[in-house]
């Protein structure tokens, strides 16, 4: 289940950044992918839509955190929402 969250988050990041999926790992940062602040906000929005969760306003704000941070944030938000894998609305 956890791996599923991780791969779905990384799929979204790859799709939104237009990068090859193989280049996107939990060790990558948004900065590495050349994602600017507005693109990062859109990416977080797509992730929120896909999992039906709300992430913190400053999530991915400076782009220097690894994507593991984003994956962790989704796990925490899902746990908060009381389900392991959210409704796959736009996944």
């Amino acid at each position: 289940m956890n791996d599923d969250v991780e791969s779905r988050v990384l799929d979204i990041v790859a799709r939104q950044s237009g990068k090859d999926r193989a280049a996107v790992t939990t060790e990558t940062t948004l900065k590495d992918l050349g994602v600017d602040s507005l693109e990062a906000i859109e990416m977080v929005f797509e992730i929120e839509e896909a999992f039906g969760v709300q992430l913190a306003d400053d999530q991915a704000r400076d782009g220097t955190e690894t994507l593991q941070g984003l994956v962790d944030a989704v796990h925490i938000a899902l746990a908060h929402a009381g389900h392991a894998a959210g409704p796959a609305r736009a996944a």
């Binding site: 977080v44 929005f45 400053d58």
Partner: peptide
């Protein structure tokens, strides 16, 4: 809210 530029 969606722009994430508001102070809380």
């Amino acid at each position: 809210e969606a722009m994430r530029v508001l102070a809380d």
